[in-house]
Design a binder for these strands. Structure first.
Lengths: 187, 187
DNA sequence: GTCTATAATAGGATAGAC
DNA sequence: GTCTATCCTATTATAGAC
């Protein structure tokens, strides 16, 4: 049996922006088909469970991205602030400087929320936990570190929503800029 | 010509929770019909432009709610903190203590974002401006007040997203609780 | 102003040839 | 693994009677 023309991971990679942009309900098979360059039937070959499977794969892909590009840099070399800076730089790219929306945030809306509740909770929690660990390493009490970490993720998500509503990237840029101080600085 | 059985405002009031819960793309005419108790044709009588008209009406209704229940209380009697408290209490009710999502936030996702960009921007901006005015009245420099006001709305939106993703109301409750100090306290 | 009925289209999903 | 063709359902929207 011959190797696939494009590996499944590549397919998922092309699916992701559609869910990121349109949300789950708004992402139609037509769009998903067009974005991947695959016909409907080919998509069902990769994802026998249909659209739900595609959504789940997109979340997993997003989770991997977060692990590799946001969470992993937090435990690299350098000061906590330096490491945090690497995460923020990558997030700035992912969200196109505030012009794009968040896959995870979009999937919290509508039907997909219940459909992917467990996966969403896990990803959000891992993200928060990683930031909390960094803040703790920077010298903050564990409870305070956890609160600030959750607040950082809240702000990122909120800035994408409000910036999207205003049609302005400033809220996102300003929010990213203040996270280092708000997360790591002593009280 | 006889008076309508239910006034249009009442219809919109019943439409709103559907968009608030499912977002624009996820809100089907079937759901909207069921929620209002009206058949499809009756809905088209009130909203000749179809679903887009219904969405627009829901936004207008949400904007009115915000004006009356969130913004107006900010200019009532009492200290700025007291007035802010009234807004926060009403928001806590609107969002069911963090269990519900935000109509405006949901409409920033997908097709509806472009469809209602102007309306959304206006509502978000008015909300932010009202909070900025309060912070300025409390003694903060105008620029600082504007930043803090935007941050407050960002946090509310973000807390609803993250709390929704985690399946936990704590992020929203904690976020509301800290807004008075973060918005009004001297530096 | 509301209804039933229905159009017209887009949605998700499947069958079967290659 | 991919395609074309198709199915069934749900969708948005409209027509016309009352």
């Amino acid at each position: 049996m011959p190797a696939p023309l494009i590996p499944r991971d590549e397919v998922v990679l092309r699916l992701l922006p559609v869910f990121q942009r349109y949300g789950y309900d708004g992402a139609s098979l037509s769009e998903l088909s067009k974005a991947t360059g695959l016909g409907r039937s080919s998509l069902y070959h990769y994802f026998p469970g249909g659209k739900a499977d595609m959504g789940r794969a997109a979340i997993e892909c997003g989770a991997r991205w977060l692990r590799d590009n946001a969470i992993a840099p937090l435990s690299g070399a350098g000061t906590p602030a330096k490491r945090l800076g690497r995460m923020l730089k990558n997030l700035d790219g992912l969200y196109a400087g505030g012009r794009a929306s968040c896959l995870l945030g979009n999937l919290v809306i509508g039907e997909s929320r219940q459909l992917f509740q467990a996966e969403l909770a896990q990803v959000f929690q891992r993200w928060i936990d990683a930031l909390a660990a960094l803040a703790a390493e920077a010298g903050l009490p564990r409870a305070e570190a956890a609160k600030r970490a959750q607040d950082a993720v809240i702000r990122i998500q909120g800035a994408l929503i409000v910036g999207g509503g205003l049609g302005d990237t400033a809220p996102f840029r300003r929010t990213l800029a203040r996270i280092p101080a708000d997360l790591l600085a002593g009280r």
